[in-house]
Design a protein around this nucleic acid. Structure first.
Lengths: 122, 122
DNA sequence: AAGACACTTGAATAAATGCTCATATAACTA
DNA sequence: TAGTTATATGAGCATTTATTCAAGTGTCTT
């Protein structure tokens, strides 16, 4: 009912495989969940953010330390930390002028590990 | 030696935290690995590709079936399947005119699951 | 051989993205 | 109070990217 009209041209396969397609459709998660999942992985899909996350997995760090570590401007790092915070991957605490960032939890590591397993298989 | 000159302005923190930054630097994986990891997650960072992968996790499907399932053009699906194949996430087999795609292995599911765990924690 | 069919591919376009630069904010220091 | 320091933010720009459109390839059918 809430589905928009399917304007895609159908082919013979669709008829032959109708049952399979319908079964898959029934098993697909909600659109929103898949969208959120894509949004999460999008955050991991940038080498600057990956390097920030990896660094923070080793130690809590302030913005300027991360900037020097990755040889990038403070501004660039700050922008990316904002993205990571919005994705609920990092948190921060303020100590005077200095803002220290750290990982929210250890999911990051587990997501990394799954990715590395795939990469390392040839 | 192969490091390019660090042109980023240093601050007091860098001096105070010098040891920590150096420790983190030593523990960071090779640039190339982190780059590959980002490239992999970039592939997961699109809802069309996520939906294709999820569908293929349920069943082997041909291009036109996926197109109808996701209500997108064959061309768009074909382009994305190419990306997924280059990332070594899907494989295909030809049966006459029809090309059937399927997952290369079950890593995809494990990567999804780790992502979902993060999403579901508030 | 001609046409239909399933799919691929390349160019074009609109949208999203990451970085830079300049400026703003907030906290410390002299 | 004025200046410095650490960080955040907004605008601008160059690059990347997802989709569309048009055309191409290979296979089957008649």
């Amino acid at each position: 009912m809430t589905e928009k009209f399917n304007s895609i041209e159908r082919c013979d396969c669709n008829v032959i495989h109708e049952d399979i397609v319908n079964q898959v459709r029934d098993k697909m998660p909600q659109e929103e969940i898949l969208y959120d999942l894509a949004e999460l992985f999008k955050v991991f899909g940038d080498s600057t953010r990956i390097r920030i996350l990896w660094a923070l997995h080793e130690a809590e760090m302030c913005v300027c330390d991360i900037a020097v570590l990755l040889n990038m401007t403070q501004s660039a790092i700050s922008h990316q930390l904002r993205v990571l915070k919005q994705a609920n991957l990092v948190k921060n605490r303020k100590e005077g002028k200095v803002v220290y960032y750290s990982l929210v939890d250890d999911h990051v590591r587990e997501i990394f590990d799954q990715g590395l397993i795939h990469i390392n298989e040839k």
